[in-house]
Each structure stands twice: as C-alpha cells, then as structure tokens.
C-alpha cells in the first residue's frame, strides 16, 4: 500500500511538473510578447491555451538528425541525463504538510531525505554532465565551446549557491527540507533572516538554469545554439524541457529555503478544517513558485546578457566573497544571541 501511495504521488507530481513546464513555455512567450508589444501565440485553442500541445506534437514528428561524426551513444544519452536530473530534484521538495485522503494520511513530499539539501546540490552538479556530454559528443566546435562555457559558468556559481545554503543551515540546524519549512512558521521566513544569502542564492539559481542575464552557453550571435546545436526533434525538445524544468525546480527550492515553502502565516490558528488547511498550503506553495517564475521570466526580457568576463568576475570576485562573508556574519550573530 505504501509503495502504491508513493507511486501515485510520483506519477501525479511528474505529470503536474511536465504540464507546468509546457505551460511555462507558453507563459514565457506570452509575457515576452506583452513586453515587446506583440500579441504572441493566441491561435491554437482558446487564447492559445493549446499551444504547448501543438509544440510537443510537432517535436514528436520532426526528423531526428544525428551527424555522421557524432559519438552516437553519448549523443543519445545526453538529453536523457539532462531531463531526468532536472525532473528528479523535485523529489525532495515539500509542497505541503500532510493531507487526509480516503482515510490515509499522506505526506505531501515524495521523499523526506535526511540530507535533502545535499541531494539538491548533488543533482545540480549532475546537471553539468548532460550539457558537457552533449557538447562533447556532437563533434562540433560551437557545441564544444558552448558546453565548456556552460560547465565553467555552472561550477562557478555552484560555489556561491552552496555557501549561501550554509547560511540557511546555520540558522535552522537541519539539512531536511521539510524541517526547514517547518522552521519558517508564521513570518519567520528565511529571506528576512538571510537577506544577503537569498540574493546570492537567487542569482546563482539564474546562472545554474542558464537564464537570460547568464545564458551564455547558447548565446545565439556567437555560438549558434551552444551545446544543442546538433540536436533536432525530440532530443532538442528534451533539452528545452530540461531548461524549463530546471527553472521550476529552482524556484521551488528558492521558495522552500527562503520564502517559507508552504507556510501561510496564521493559517494553523485560524480554525479551518484540516483538509482545507492542506489545500491552502499547497495553493500557497504553488502561488509562491508561480510568483518567482514570473519574476524570472520578466527579468529575462528586461535585462541584457552579460559578457563572459563580466559573468566570471561577478561569480568569482563578488558573489563568492559576499556569500562567505554572509556565512561568517551569520555565525557570529548566532553566537551573540545564543
């Protein structure tokens, strides 16, 4: 029975996540159209709501071209690694407390791993492999350079990401994501206790997901398509989905660590029935993730791209010292108040 519940939870989460990914692409296109004073996709279905379905169908029936000189097994493996890794991060994110359904008490988290944060960090590290292998296996100059750049960028920002997380652990004394959310009850959101950590972490998330101020791996004017130059059809689609799935999991992590996760202030003391409390908590989590995603989309269409040396300077000379200073100051303040 327990295995069945886990299985159902996993399937539901995965379906919801994939649907969100498809619709995030639509939201991004509509928002970019709004910002650039265009209309955007509005023909397929009511106000363009079926556009993602049409896109996915189109990707399915496109011919798949594997260049003759490419390393074929690795060329096939790379998009699979990218998408599986970016989907799997959501497995440790709590999207609610508990819910009573049909007499079973279900925890609204797939796996409450006791080293949840380390799992998240490890999977971000694994994400590099998909890109590096794609760049290497394509046997193309643009792919190789794009993959290399991407790796250097991701590992540079992974440092400030990891060190910002240490600030969170100092305050909460736990590595479990659900415990971290429980810590942030009421208004004790970690963004208020760790404002600098939040900023460095959020910027690092932008760099990790290759979002626009940092989208050098696929800077079109210089590198054609970057690491996915040689990918067509569904394999390109998988990279595309992986990027957007990364955005969703990334903002889910931001919400969990800094914005209180599923916590809705004063909800527990309001005396609502337990079932509705759980529903509101899940809704709160979804709303917070949606807000962060919208922010990321708007940033993409308002801020120009960095130059590569500016990117490395920001990562190594600004974010890294800043996040280390944040850890030391946090530790000192905790010592003073303990």
């Amino acid at each position: 029975m327990e295995i069945l519940i886990s299985l159902i939870k996993i399937l539901v989460v995965m379906l919801v996540l994939l649907t969100c990914v498809a619709y995030l692409v639509l939201v991004e296109r509509r928002v970019s159209a709004f910002i650039q004073n265009r209309i955007g996709p509005n023909r397929v279905g009511y106000k363009g709501l079926l556009q993602p379905v049409a896109d996915v169908l189109k990707l399915f029936i496109k011919e798949d071209i594997v260049p003759k000189l490419a390393n074929k097994p690795l060329h096939r493996l790379a998009p699979i690694i990218a998408i599986v890794v970016s989907l799997s991060t959501i497995a440790v994110v709590p999207f609610g407390d508990k819910i009573n359904l049909f007499g079973y008490e279900i925890k609204l988290q797939i796996a409450s791993v006791n080293i949840g944060i380390l799992y998240v960090l490890a999977l971000t590290g694994l994400g590099v492999y998909g890109i590096a292998i794609a760049g290497w296996a394509s046997n193309n100059k643009y792919s190789l350079l794009g993959g290399l750049r991407s790796c250097a960028q991701i590992i540079s920002y992974e440092l400030s990401m990891g060190i910002s997380i240490i600030g969170v652990i100092l305050v909460t004394s736990t590595l479990q994501l659900d415990k971290i959310v429980e810590f942030q009850h009421g208004w004790r959101w970690l963004i208020l206790l760790q404002p600098i950590g939040f900023i460095t972490f959020f910027v690092a998330i932008f760099a990790e997901t290759n979002r626009l101020p940092f989208d050098l791996p696929e800077a079109e004017p210089e590198l054609v398509g970057g690491y996915h130059t040689e990918y067509t059809g569904l394999k390109f689609g998988l990279f595309f989905l992986a990027e957007y799935a990364n955005m969703i999991t990334g903002s889910a992590i931001v919400v969990t660590l800094y914005l209180g996760g599923w916590q809705f202030p004063y909800l527990q003391s309001s005396g609502l029935p337990e079932f509705w409390t759980s529903i509101i908590q899940v809704g709160t989590f979804a709303a917070k993730v949606g807000a962060v995603l919208l922010f990321m989309v708007i940033i993409r269409w308002t801020v120009p791209r960095f130059r590569y040396d500016q990117l490395m300077d920001l990562g190594w000379k600004f974010m890294l010292p800043l996040s280390i200073a944040n850890v030391i100051v946090t530790a000192f303040i905790i010592y003073l108040f303990e």
């Binding site: 327990e2 295995i3 886990s6 299985l7 996993i10 399937l11 995965m14 994939l18 990707l59 399915f60 029936i61 496109k62 011919e63 798949d64 699979i80 998408i83 599986v84 989907l87 799997s88 497995a91 440790v92 797939i110 796996a111 409450s112 791993v113 006791n114 799992y119 059809g233 569904l234 394999k235 998988l238």
Partner: peptide
C-alpha cells in the same frame, strides 16, 4: 520503502517517461 528508495523510484519513473517519449518519436517521425 526508505526515503532514498522513493528517490530511486522517482528516477526510474522519470527514465521510463523519457524513454517512452523517445521510442514514440522514433516510431512516428520520418
């Protein structure tokens, strides 16, 4: 299932999803 067992289950199901998609595309596409 332990917690890491669930994570493994998630990995396996994600892998199956992706493989199914790729196989379908392989059948359908020209």
């Amino acid at each position: 299932l332990t917690d890491f067992g669930r994570v493994l289950l998630f990995f396996i199901i994600a892998g199956i999803f992706v493989t199914l998609g790729l196989v379908t595309a392989w059948i359908v596409r020209p």
